[in-house]
Nucleic acid binder design. Sequence first.
DNA 1: TGTAAATACTACAAAAAGGTAGTAATATAT
DNA 2: ATATATTACTACCTTTTTGTAGTATTTACA
Lengths: 144, 144
Amino acid sequence: MTLNKTTEYALTILGFMATRNENMYSAEYLHNQLNIPRRYLRRLLTDMSKHGFLKSTSGRNGGFVFDRDLKEISLAMIINTIEGSDAIFTCILGFSCCIVDKPCIMHDSWMEARSKMVDTLSNTTLADLKEKYQLDLIRNLKLL
Amino acid sequence: MTLNKTTEYALTILGFMATRNENMYSAEYLHNQLNIPRRYLRRLLTDMSKHGFLKSTSGRNGGFVFDRDLKEISLAMIINTIEGSDAIFTCILGFSCCIVDKPCIMHDSWMEARSKMVDTLSNTTLADLKEKYQLDLIRNLKLL
DNA sequence: TGTAAATACTACAAAAAGGTAGTAATATAT
DNA sequence: ATATATTACTACCTTTTTGTAGTATTTACA
């Protein structure tokens, strides 16, 4: 019922990067900000570069930036990419095969629950998060 | 983004038992019907007895039956019980602590997605599954 | 051109989840 | 009573996930 750690990290990292305005994020900097284990974080960043979310620059002053428009990256995409194919969309209970009868017993209730979630995750992009974050900032300033 | 295997098994077992009309289910029988590893299945059944979902009878002709009204067992309860406390209800991303700023960036979108799912899972009981299953049976008979 | 700051790659270690084995305990049937 | 069918307990093995280590490579800057 939970995302695995790696996916959680991925969302944290991309969510963080999407809402700040640096023009480059080094692994070291992200490690300090997000408290994700150094080496693991690095591997994940490299991974996300390979998957086309990020673009890496090696060498001094290097780091990572987005390689795609924030509007093009939904939460569902991140989860599916990191967690393996179609983590969200398949019948995770495996109910289509685990019980002799078909259709499986819980299939319908599960699919109903699931599809509600998928809708939200598919319709929320990093751009949405950024917008929300900045509105929140403004709102807080006004309250001061 | 998936339930773990153990929870999946638990749902499968309880779903199966809820929709049949045997008065006793032995581990061996359930193993044959559901293809869940023998020993693991047994341990899980014992576990579910300890958690009050089932009642066990030892010895020859023994087995497991429900120890509670089917109306009192929701899918959400099963998941939470097997998967550890509040698997469904807590902020699984850990976003309240993983980013220096609070509230966490994805908290809102995640909670929206999640609460939709929780609603369905909390409102569906094993009794509902049973009813649905039997209606389906009747419907299929009519089609023959 | 050498040094420092960064990513990239590969292999391994530790922890958690999933699964198995052996044996004890319990209850029924004959 | 004894054999058999069942659950209960404990320890261990396997696989997957998470995390670490060492070393190579790339690049900017003094």
